[in-house]
Amino acid sequence: MNPNAKDRSILRLAIPNKGRIADPVIELVESGGLKLENSRTRRLISKTSDPDIEVLFARPADIPEYVANGAADIGITGRDMVLERGSVVDEILDLKSGHARLVLAVPEDSGITSSKQLGGMKVATEFPGICGKYFDEIGVDVVLVPVGGACEAAPYLGIADAIVDLTSSGTTLATNNLRIVDEILDSTTILIGNPGSRKKFHEKIDEFCLAIDSVIHARGQRYLMMNVERSYLDDVRAVLPGLSGPTVMDVVSDKSMVAVHAVVSEDHLYSLVSTLKRAGAKDILVVPIERMIR
Results as ranks from 00 to 15, higher is better:
S244E: 13
P246A: 09
P246D: 13
T247H: 01
V248E: 05
V248T: 08
V248L: 07
V248P: 06
D250G: 15
V251I: 13
V251E: 07
V251F: 02
V251T: 14
V251C: 07
V251Q: 10
V252P: 09
V252M: 14
V252I: 13
S253G: 11
S253K: 11
K255N: 15
K255Y: 13
M257T: 09
M257V: 06
M257C: 08
V258I: 10
A259H: 14
A259Y: 04
A259K: 10
A259P: 05
A259M: 11
A259S: 15
V260H: 06
V260N: 05
V260P: 06
H261T: 14
H261K: 15
A262W: 01
V263S: 03
V264Q: 03
V264T: 05
V264Y: 00
V264R: 00
S265D: 11
S265V: 01
S265L: 05
S265M: 03
E266A: 14
D267E: 13
D267T: 14
D267L: 15
D267G: 14
H268C: 12
H268M: 13
H268G: 13
L269D: 00
L269P: 00
Y270H: 13
Y270E: 11
Y270A: 12
S271Y: 06
S271D: 04
L272R: 01
L272K: 01
L272E: 10
L272G: 04
V273D: 10
S274W: 01
S274K: 00
S274Q: 00
S274D: 04
T275W: 08
T275V: 12
L276I: 00
L276T: 01
L276E: 00
K277G: 14
K277W: 15
K277P: 08
K277M: 11
R278Q: 04
R278N: 06
R278E: 04
A279K: 02
A279R: 01
